[in-house]
Design a binder for these strands. Sequence first.
DNA 1: CGAACGCTTGACACTCTTCAAGACATGTGG
DNA 2: CCACATGTCTTGAAGAGTGTCAAGCGTTCG
Lengths: 250, 250
Amino acid sequence: MSADSKNQQYDALPHCADCMIRVTGVCSGATAVDLRALEQAKVYRRFGPGETIALAGSRMTHIGTVMSGVCTLARTQGRGTRQIVGLLQPGDFLGRPWRTISPFDVETATAVELCGFRPAVFEGLLDRMDGLRRRMMEMMLDELDAARSWLTILARKTAREKLASLLVNMTLRQNTAPLRGKPCRVDIMLSREQIADLLSMTFETVSRQLTSLAREGLILPVTRRVFDVPDLHALMQASGEDADGGFFHV
Amino acid sequence: MSADSKNQQYDALPHCADCMIRVTGVCSGATAVDLRALEQAKVYRRFGPGETIALAGSRMTHIGTVMSGVCTLARTQGRGTRQIVGLLQPGDFLGRPWRTISPFDVETATAVELCGFRPAVFEGLLDRMDGLRRRMMEMMLDELDAARSWLTILARKTAREKLASLLVNMTLRQNTAPLRGKPCRVDIMLSREQIADLLSMTFETVSRQLTSLAREGLILPVTRRVFDVPDLHALMQASGEDADGGFFHV
DNA sequence: CGAACGCTTGACACTCTTCAAGACATGTGG
DNA sequence: CCACATGTCTTGAAGAGTGTCAAGCGTTCG
């Protein structure tokens, strides 16, 4: 039934009615009636790890909600240094209505499923649907706050604190109820180099600080990208954050 | 006529019909009819330099367009370091609808005139006026891009490049047509310490780099905060930006 | 005039980057 | 199965760029 030519015969993604992401995504602002229109317009897309979804300056063919996996927004500077300015995790919105030229490179770090729309279609829906539009504005405001919080982390923290911050952040997003004192596990899903590009360091410094944190027992390596966190509270203190203070979420 | 109690007897600010800011502000999205409603709802406010408009976590009594002067959005870190995460210059929108608790300290760097609205009133106008709402979303998207571009500058540039970037940015905003090769003037309006908080450096380093740029003739000091820029293109190169590449605007 | 403030300049310490080599894992072809 | 290549990660040593601490200058204001 009306398969987009790009859509291989994967298992179908959930219908809006059964979709878990809908709790937090843009579509959480949609009414039941709206949802039926969204269902008709949406186009699922899948990407492998390491694929480029859009280069900076190019037009995005689809915008929408990340269903699973992690995307990076990045820009390459003058002399080859690369800065990742945002991570898109499940529930986050990829692309912007009325601004279909992406100002950043959009790439997948892992396999990614996207619940997408043609930009013009989605803009039409936004104009029609009050709730959807309202949720969209909320999410944009949240993203702005997150970007600014992220700014303070990159700008003022030491290498050690930056890594601890990233680990705490991802631990919180990956564990539903990470009780303090209760050990938990975190998968950073990014290579040392990607972490470096995200935190504005060299991958050597990333490696050094990770082994340093491991030596002190704040994290316990399981594989190279998976760690056990025996004491999240201790890791928070290493991140230099005041108590529960403003933990970013992008 | 209907003077707000906060409004001392200053000269009146312009009517919307004569307002220059309206070219770039949110209200540029308003129709002639909308404009009459805006005119009725707006409340001009004035602040002296160094005033605190809102502390982080507090409710903003007014949101609206900055008419003149410069405001800073800032947050104080754990050990007393301060990070300015955004500058609000004339035409920029101060505060966010549906998010009246400010996540940052809002302060004036100079004397500031604000064309403000009660949050609830402005939200009502947004719901009613398609053009206004559309322009608001555009501005939010631009702000998000600006925050992310700013991120790459803070994260990856040297002290010298950061200062050059800031100077170029402000020069572009303060000169309508800064032709390359044509000399122009820039007023940074911020103290050395504020610049340091904005660029994540110490004020000593700011001072050193400014004198260094001046020694090389890239900027010519007029007063301590005003410089002539004999060759904007040369300054751009010192900023490490690729040609005209993504110059941020906050 | 003295005090307060913003700014400049210097000397030194320290963090992080840079350059370089090696360890470890994975995959390929003989 | 090995030799070899490749990519990712670790570790080391030296150097550059900023932060830190400290002193001094210039202006403003009471």
